[in-house]
Design a protein around this nucleic acid. Structure first.
Lengths: 111, 111
DNA sequence: TGTATATTTTACCAATTTGCCAAATATGTT
DNA sequence: AACATATTTGGCAAATTGGTAAAATATACA
């Protein structure tokens, strides 16, 4: 594979990797509605706060989220409008997959 | 985190994980244009054919691609229409990130 | 039947990612 | 300054993922 093209896909894979974790998906999903600060997200997710902070830094460095300081708190928010659409596409894939699995199960129980 | 919700994000993360690899992104990108069989993809990517086959099985099991047999060959193709859009969103993130990095570099070289 | 081609599976090791704790940093309050 | 709250960083063991070679399967054809 040509090395420039390879590099491009490497960078794009980095973005997908950032989204490839349940806690990080939940974070992004919540940030579709409103900006939130770290403690809020920590309560939602339930992991150690240092773990949540690390998830946030992965998402930030991937260019998916952004932050702003307000007093002691750091608010995180989505960076681009297309991100909810990206999530909903991956949800579609999940829904379709589930639909097919159910179909297979049903066909097995038929005469 | 509630265990049903957790499970949902776990499954969705699995889909993102499938896309979180440069070779697999390239495969999906190519399949946006037309269906292809394993040897064709192997030439494009350059990895060992067993590696390519593994990538394909990861994408298939994630519900992103589908296959059909024709003689000795197995043709792979995208499963859902929204996938090109998902890719273009992650490209947007990459482009915006790159744009900002360039901006920072330029501001450093100014008076 | 045997042979050639296309693809997948298995087994293995190296590299990466996770998640927690403890320590460090940053900001606001007294 | 001392203290409290919010967040990040560094270090480490456990779990997961990535890539290859070799073996196994599947299909077509002589």
């Amino acid at each position: 594979m040509d090395s420039n093209i390879k590099n491009k896909y490497e960078l794009q894979a980095q973005i997908m990797k950032a989204l490839a974790h349940p806690a990080r998906l939940l974070i992004v999903k919540e940030l579709c509605n409103r900006e939130m600060f770290v403690c809020e997200l920590q309560k939602l997710i339930g992991d150690d706060i240092s773990t949540v902070s690390k998830h946030l830094s992965i998402l930030k460095q991937a260019g998916i989220i952004d932050d702003r300081k307000e007093g002691l708190r750091i608010y995180y928010r989505l960076k681009l409008k297309c991100i909810p659409m990206l999530l909903s596409c991956s949800e579609n894939i999940l829904i379709e997959k589930t639909r097919e699995e159910i179909e297979i199960l049903q066909s097995l129980s038929k005469p």
